[in-house]
Design a protein around this nucleic acid. Structure first.
Lengths: 226, 226, 226, 226
DNA sequence: GATGAATGAGAGTTCATTCAT
DNA sequence: GATGAATGAACTCTCATTCAT
């Protein structure tokens, strides 16, 4: 998995360099980058559609418009392709949110609304819910994938909550220690929503952001945050 | 897994009855029931271990101590074996809980504690959480499985909540309409726990029952119900 | 193959004896003979329907209303069953025809009409054409079968023709030596008919007897024999 | 079998053309055509040897000197391989004969000698008799194959006879209407010969062309045509 | 004699992976 | 770099045959 990362990073970098400095000679680095990008895109779609086991390299190649052997130029094995694709989707995905700083007078609840709630509003439209489902579905077979997910998505959010809960308690925003003792409680509705909408009951989707908002209000003294 | 045992036992009994009726000719019904039971048991273990795609009939047979072709006497295809095994695990699993009646003076919260909370305390020990994970993981490939799960597990619980929420509201147990508008909110912590413990962070399991209890108290006026 | 013959013969004999002499005690010999007969009947139907390779013992047993293992009491292998069944159908099938003697004043042509033509009129109704097809179809795989067919059906008829042709020539029934040089010519239309009706063009069957009659007239001085 | 060679040759030519158009990239089209040709050749031999049911893809591959999976690149299933191979052998096989025109002064009998009789002289050497046997033998299981055979071989010949018979009758070549009423009669000896030589009595083959010639003379006023 | 559960060799088929071009 | 023909391990499924009951 770290291998894929390096490869990915290196390729992207050298391509960026090539684009601006070099004249296009020999095999075009642009085209190479495009080829890789289209393979990754195709692979993601394929894995989302069929899951790891039923996805085939041949189908990925076809979707990407390249020959069957070409994906192997970029990923050594099907597993590496899978891991690479998902990782690319996850790494840094949370970046902007975690950068956000709570305003001096901003309540914790308001801060969480401003950051998490907004993001959750797009979780499905941006395909993040589908990725989460994929990780869940293939996680048993690919523990490494889960680890990435935990590191890049799950833990950061949970850590944020763990960090903010005592602050909110001190600020009098929380009526008790429940959130401190059970930080998972705040994000539970999000997972409930992902599970319901992606797997259990696609025909009756719930409003994930709405569910989260309700939980937020429930835990923060009940009324809408200021 | 203990379920299989019960089934097996029941079957054995009825077979014993059959033996006295029919002429004792041909292979022993006892052994047959045992064979099927061991195949089902082995298959469940195999599927839980490897998921559907990576499970092999040969491995199931080996676990069960039978020949490669034997499972096909009981299940026509690998898919049928999978569906049969999981279905057997699910159908009627909730039976006793749904039979329970709320006492005349019993608060809704107390009722939910008495029924759901107790059950949740065993959800992992009894392998229910693992089954839930399996259904989640394979649900994309086996919509029929999800439907069974929804029918036998998910919807009954949700319907119960939908039925009880207005009652609790009328009895003054609920401070607002949140549970009525978002019934999923109450069970969200359970799924959060299953996901966390089965897939995301096996090394740091959360207390599912505890999480649910906290949510229950959170929604029901904050204090522990009586 | 000779094995099957012995078994068959012996069984039939002892059963015939049992029927008339013994009292039915222990496993009924009658029932045994019936069982075998129904297996043979079922097997013939199965082989005619599906050919040897696609026929299954299980299906034969089911058609016969017996258990899967029962056919093995009478025939050691699937091949033996096949050979036995076909042989039973062929051996002696021509018997009566070959016994017939040409009348003192009867022309050869008239004799052939009286014997072969009559038989050919029933060749399809009596299932002989279907048997011929089966032998043809499976003959490559079962040379022994073909040998039986040749011995019991093909050669006797051909020998008859070879024997009668010179007689007819001497009697002035034949305009030339063609039938003596090409005895196959007389029966060719029969095989043409079997092939056409059983295999090549089932929707446009030809009249086998009619074809043979035309050939008979063609070879014997052209006009209908008396 | 020589047919395959021709096809192969043709393909090679067109590939050679393709090579100059396309960029010479990827595997050699030459080798591909050879591979396919050798698979087809091997398959035909295998099917002729063992029949469809007993033929195995593994054996075909081995005969062709390729891996077990390779035939699947060219034929999706065993059935497709079988149908493809036989069809290739049949389609257009009659081509040249049907193109022939009867000369202005040529008798119908002479015309039939010149076309059919010559062809029949090679029917066994060119493997056509073996193909006919294969179609007959597998026809029950592959009606589509029989249909091809009927369309490409059987019906064209029969139609030719149906067309020529009235002409011959008008020209005074035929003593009666028998051939008009029974067109099958003329080709019956051919099938008799195929059956005898390929299936019933390999050790005592008849001269197929000779048999046909005798029948031709028999039907056409008895003497050799001019 | 009869039963039918159990066996296990074997066949068709798939597809990740390789590599000559 | 790209191609796609070729490979062959591995898997599902079938069914003739056996044998305890």
């Amino acid at each position: 998995m770290p291998k894929s990362k390096q490869t990915s990073a290196k390729t992207l970098t050298s391509n960026a360099a090539a684009r601006s400095k070099r004249v296009a000679r020999g095999p075009s680095p642009d085209k190479t980058a495009q080829t890789k990008a289209s393979i990754v895109r195709a692979a993601l779609a394929e894995f989302l559609d069929k899951g790891f086991a039923d996805a085939t390299i041949a189908s990925v190649a076809q979707r990407a418009g390249v020959a069957k052997g070409t994906p192997y130029r970029y990923f050594a094995t099907k597993e590496a392709l899978f891991a690479g694709v998902v990782q690319q989707e996850l790494v840094g995905a949370l970046g902007e949110i975690l950068e956000e700083r709570r305003g001096r007078d901003e309540s914790v609840q308001a801060f969480l609304r401003r950051t998490l709630l907004i993001t959750l509003g797009e979780i499905e439209r941006k395909g993040r819910a589908a990725i989460a489902r994929l990780v869940i579905v293939e996680g048993v077979r690919f523990p490494a994938l889960v680890e990435i997910y935990r590191r890049e998505m799950f833990d950061p959010v949970l850590d944020q909550i763990k960090r903010l809960a005592p602050v909110a308690r001190r600020r009098g925003e929380l009526p008790d220690d429940r959130l401190i003792r059970h930080p998972h409680l705040l994000i539970a509705p999000v997972w409930m929503g992902i599970l319901n909408n992606q797997l259990i009951d696609r025909d009756h989707p719930v409003d994930i952001a709405g569910l989260f908002e309700a939980q937020l209000e429930l835990m923060f003294s009940g009324e809408a945050g200021r």
